[in-house]
């Protein structure tokens, strides 16, 4: 549980953090809440030479009503998202998902930006961001750019962020209440064995947790819904084209089965919420 040696730098601003990332693009990592990176470092599965702590940068923790969307600062902690009135009113799925991450200690330390930038397919927020069709704002040496959630998660723990870019804001189109999150795990604090985020406001969007190397949309379900299929019929396609992992908690086959059950339940719950 002792990490390999690293240099620690505390950034006072996003520009300073990006400057340090530029100096050492292969060997520097950003540290926010630390709940994904530090365990990997303690197990020596990650051995960055430079750790750039962005946790004290002012002004990146907020949940704001920005007209047609909700703007969430990357350093917003899960607990703050869970309790945000703006999130509850206009992006209620995110608030509900945040409330189920890990345990209270994790929720008081972990940040939405850290969780998304880590890109873990077993994490809940990436799937929720996909289901909402969120947009991610990344700042780099040449200014900012916007990345649609659908183009963000590229591979296992791999995202569209460049080594010298930092995720600064998440923009979520305002949504009503017709959404649901189904999380299946063996203990409350665990990562989901399978999770489902469904949003039925507008064009139905369904995203899955832990059903492949990246957070992924259940395209076959969405298509079935678009062509008028019932929840039960659409849910039968939940695992179409997906090859979820087998691990000590569940086989791939069981995950595929769970996905169909959980998608059906999510669709029914979201649909009931629409009233």
């Amino acid at each position: 549980m002792i990490p390999a040696k690293f240099e620690y730098r505390r950034a006072g601003s996003v520009d300073e953090a990006i400057g340090w990332l530029r100096e050492d693009p292969d060997d520097a990592k950003l540290l926010a809440g630390g709940h994904s990176l530090l365990p990997l470092m303690k197990l020596r599965l990650a051995t960055p030479g430079v750790l750039v702590d962005v946790g004290r940068i002012d002004g990146l923790s907020y949940v704001r009503d920005a007209g047609d969307h909700v703007a969430i600062g990357a350093l917003t902690r899960h607990r703050d998202l869970e309790t945000s009135e703006v999130a509850r009113a206009h992006a209620p799925l995110l608030a509900r998902v945040a409330a189920q991450i890990g345990d209270p200690q994790v929720r008081h330390r972990g940040t939405i930006g850290g969780s998304l930038a880590h890109g873990d397919p077993a994490s809940d927020l990436p799937a929720a961001a996909l289901a909402y069709g969120a947009t991610f704002v990344a700042q780099g040496p040449n200014g900012t750019r916007q990345i649609p959630a659908d183009e963000f998660f590229l591979g296992f723990l791999e995202t569209a962020l460049q080594p010298d870019e930092m995720l600064t804001e998440i923009r979520v189109p305002k949504s009503g209440g017709a959404s649901a999150f189904q999380k299946f795990n063996r203990r409350a604090q665990d990562w989901a064995i399978v999770g489902v985020a469904a949003v039925l406001d507008g064009t139905p969007r369904v995203a899955l947790v832990n059903m492949g190397p990246t957070p992924v949309r259940a395209r076959a379900v969405e298509e079935a819904l678009a062509s008028g299929a019932s929840a039960v019929d659409a849910a039968a396609h939940a695992a179409d084209g997906l090859e979820p992992p087998s691990d000590v908690h569940a086989s791939s086959e069981y995950r595929r089965h769970l996905a169909t059950v959980l998608v059906r339940r999510a669709l029914e719950e979201a649909s009931a919420a629409r009233g």
Binding site: L43, D103, R186, R187, A188, Q189, D190, W191, V248, H249
Partner: peptide, 24 residues
């Protein structure tokens, strides 16, 4: 305490070795 066929222990952290908490 789960092992693979080669005798490697697979449950070496509390993310994989599931000790229940009060919530369970």
């Amino acid at each position: 305490a789960a092992y693979d066929e080669a005798g490697n222990i697979l449950t070496t952290s509390f993310a994989d070795y599931l000790v229940p908490a009060a919530s369970e």
